[in-house]
Structures are given as C-alpha cells and as structure tokens.
C-alpha cells in the first residue's frame, strides 16, 4: 500500500522543500501555518434522514488554535465531533464527505475510532472527571491502552502541562470530584494529554466556568499550542478573538417550510480578518452582535 498519492494533498500550498525543512517533532515549529492536520471536504452529518450539517469544507493548520463559532444550533459541536469520530457513538448518525487526518482518511473502514480518539483528544463542555482519584483520572487513558510502567511520570508531566501539578501534587490520591470546576476542567485536559495526542478538540470548555477559571484555561491553551493543534467550539466571541489564530463561522440555514435547521459553514479565515473585516455579511452581523 502506498501513501504517495496522498502526500501532495496534505500540503495545500507547499513551500519549497517543506518536507525537508520541517523540524523534528518537539522543536519549535517553523512555517507551520502551511502544515495541515485535517482536511475536510464536503462534510455532512445526518441523524437518520435529517441533515444536521451540510457541505463543510476547510483545513485545520497544525499547531494553531482554530475556533468554531456561530449561533446555537448551527452544528459546530456536531462538526467538532466528526474529527475524533465521537459521532460514531450516536446510533443513527452518519458522516459523508471526506476528512483526512495527517493524510489518512479518518473514515476508512480499517481505521479504528478508538485509536483515532487516542490521537485526537477531547475536552467536553461540562468538566467530567471520573469518580476516581486525581492520579487514576490522568492514568486512565494510558492504562486502557495497556501501559503499566512509567505512569507516575506521565501523570506528573500531564498535570504540569495542564498547569495543575502545583495545586494537586500533594493530594494525587484524593477524589477528583473534590476539585473546583476550573481545576476539574484542567484535570480533564491533563487526562486528554496523558495519552499523547497531537490534537485537542475542545467543546465549549469554559461554558461552565467562572471568568477566572476561564482565563486560566485560555492561558493554558496558549502555552500548549506549540505541542498540540487545538480546535475549540465556543459560544463566546471574545474568547474566540482572544485565543484563536483562525476562526470558522457557522450559521443555521432555517427552512421554514419543513421547520428544519441545517448547519452551514459561512467562512473560514484568520481570526483577525473574521473579527475586523469579514468577507460575508452574515459573519459581520454576527460578530458585531446584530444577530445571534
């Protein structure tokens, strides 16, 4: 089996000899805006015969933060969940179109969604730590993947990356449910990091948190983006403007004749452009607060 046919598609706008120039993993990224982690082409999501989202096409650049914004019911969470195949868990959900992840079709029948979710972590709207100790929460992912040694290091590193280590290192065996909401959400980030993903999907991670906890999470995102590609769904336009490099704006296409709403992608661009000079009128109306 050869992947050579796929390779050129990965780099949409190839810089000269980017293949050779790309630094070794772990080093400071160079010219990464041209490296693409996900390519989505005409993605639609159906629940049974109902089409929840239609014809979404955009690329997700590596080591950047991409925000998905739009009014509620526009399907941005649904789109996000296509990237780690969480939609597979919903019985009658179906995804059409193509999504490639680092050159491989995510929905290839030989691809195991379990491994996809290990490489593409997710943080959910409501902090959802397991009813176990802090340590066991972080070690959960490596353990199910079969890892038995070196868990202490993984737990420590993940908690450090999630900026939680200082707060919890003396009570790793306490229940995670005793943490504050903001701490719980950072624990969930540590839990996601612990399995060594390269992408983090965040589904409105701050909607249940107070402003201080929110600020901490936002700072954290900036700190870890050199190691991870981050996609964040947010209700909060200021948050998108603060944290993201690129922004995708979605809206709902309401059909009054049969009372259905289908999510559509309006435009994707740098965050600066979306919030200062969007090319679509609908985006402008939304970001200036005239709609939604």
């Amino acid at each position: 089996m050869s992947m050579t046919d796929e390779a050129p598609r990965l780099i949409e706008r190839p810089v000269a000899a980017s293949g050779e120039a790309t630094p070794a993993p772990g080093m400071a990224p160079l010219a990464t805006e041209r490296d693409v982690v996900f390519q989505s082409q005409d993605v639609s999501v159906y629940y049974g015969s109902f089409r929840a989202v239609r014809d979404v096409t955009f690329d997700v650049p590596k080591n950047e933060i991409m925000a998905l914004i739009g009014p509620s019911g526009c399907g941005k969470s649904t789109v996000l969940r296509c990237y780690n195949r969480m939609n597979d868990l919903i019985e009658n959900a179906r995804v059409t179109g193509s999504i490639t992840y680092r050159g491989t079709d995510l929905y290839d029948e030989r691809v195991d969604p379990v491994e996809v979710r290990r490489r593409i972590g997710m943080v959910f709207q409501k902090p959802n730590p397991f009813p176990k100790s802090i340590y066991d929460n972080v070690a959960y992912g490596p353990r199910v993947a079969g890892q038995k040694k070196g868990l202490d290091d993984i737990v420590e590193n993940s908690l450090r990356k999630a900026a939680l280590w200082e707060e919890v290192n003396d009570r790793l065996n306490d229940s995670a449910l005793g943490l504050s909401g903001g701490q719980q959400q950072r624990l969930c980030i540590a839990r996601a990091i612990a399995v060594g993903p390269d992408v983090l999907l965040m589904d409105e991670p701050c909607s249940a948190l107070d402003p201080i906890a929110t600020a901490r999470i936002e700072d954290l995102m900036q700190e870890i983006k050199q190691d991870y590609t981050i996609m964040i769904v947010t209700h909060n336009m200021q948050q998108a403007a603060r944290v993201s490099d690129t922004t995708a704006f979605f809206t709902a296409d309401v059909r009054s004749e049969n009372d259905t709403r289908t999510g559509i992608l309006v435009e994707v661009d740098t965050t600066q452009k979306i919030f200062s000079n969007p090319s679509d009128e609908r985006t402008e109306n939304y970001v200036t607060g005239r709609f939604g």
């Binding site: 030989r110 195991d112 379990v114």
Partner: peptide, 25 residues
Amino acid sequence: MTDTSVVHPDQLTVDQLQIAPSRRY
C-alpha cells in the same frame, strides 16, 4: 509503504490508526 522517502514526516497510515489486535479480539 513502498517509498517512505516521499512521504511527509507528519503523514500517518491506516495501520497506525488501529489498536492492538489483542484489544480488538
């Protein structure tokens, strides 16, 4: 993989997106 030299270093293959056979069985 017939010719790895052409492949982008970030490139994944289908094989890398599978779990251990023991877990699958």
